[in-house]
Simulated scan of single mutants.
Amino acid sequence: MGAKATVLTVVEPAHIFSTNIDQLESAREEYDRHSQQVADRILANAGARARTHGLDCDTTQVTNHEPAKAIVDTAAQRGCDLIAMASHGREGFTAFMVGSVTMKMLAHSETPVLVYR
């Protein structure tokens, strides 16, 4: 088919509240290190799986306070025809309090969104 995929991970910056500046820096550094390791692992696995199926695949990672906006912007910048994403399937009060990246995507994306749940 000649399709090309872009696999994107979005890391939200740390939101840490503390009056102890040493604790704040330590926690932020640990969060950043861990988040980068997780993103690197996800992207490496996705790229490897795509290549085993003969699919041309780019991988990228961005940091943004608004994951849905980052996804929409990346799709627009790269000229994507479709955004495929998984949904955690949170319901009720949890979904209300946590917010839903998937719902924001469906509401704001001009690119079609395929949701796997």
Rank of each mutant, 00 (worst) to 15 (best):
G2P: 04
G2C: 08
G2L: 11
A3F: 13
K4R: 14
A5R: 07
V7F: 08
L8H: 04
T9V: 11
T9A: 02
T9E: 03
V11G: 04
V11A: 10
E12T: 15
E12F: 03
E12A: 06
A14I: 10
H15G: 00
I16K: 03
F17V: 15
E25P: 00
A27C: 00
A27D: 07
A27I: 07
Y31W: 13
D32K: 07
D32Y: 01
D32S: 10
R33A: 09
R33G: 05
R33T: 14
S35N: 11
S35R: 06
S35E: 10
S35H: 06
Q36K: 12
Q37V: 09
V38Y: 07
V38Q: 09
A39F: 06
D40N: 12
D40E: 15
I42V: 15
A44E: 14
N45D: 15
N45A: 13
A46C: 07
A46M: 06
A46W: 09
A46F: 10
G47Y: 05
A48N: 10
R49F: 09
R49W: 09
R49A: 14
R51W: 02
R51A: 15
D56A: 14
D56Q: 13
D58G: 07
T60Q: 09
T60R: 08
V62H: 01
V62Q: 03
N64M: 00
N64S: 14
N64P: 01
H65T: 12
E66H: 14
P67M: 12
A68Q: 07
A68V: 07
A70E: 08
A70F: 04
I71D: 01
I71R: 00
V72H: 02
D73S: 11
D73T: 14
T74F: 01
T74K: 06
A75R: 05
A75H: 04
A75P: 03
A76W: 00
A76T: 13
A76E: 13
A76V: 12
Q77G: 08
Q77D: 14
Q77F: 00
R78G: 08
C80K: 03
L82R: 01
I83N: 00
A84G: 06
A84D: 02
M85D: 02
A86C: 10
S87F: 05
S87E: 01
H88S: 11
G89I: 11
G89N: 07
R90F: 12
F93D: 00
T94F: 04
A95N: 11
A95I: 05
M97C: 04
V98T: 13
G99C: 02
G99W: 10
S100C: 04
V101K: 01
V101L: 04
T102Q: 04
M103Q: 15
K104T: 12
M105P: 04
M105W: 03
L106W: 13
L106E: 10
A107V: 10
H108M: 10
S109H: 09
E110M: 11
E110T: 15
T111W: 05
V113P: 02
V113I: 10
L114W: 11
V115S: 04
Y116G: 05
Y116V: 15
Y116M: 12
Y116D: 11
Y116R: 11
R117Q: 13
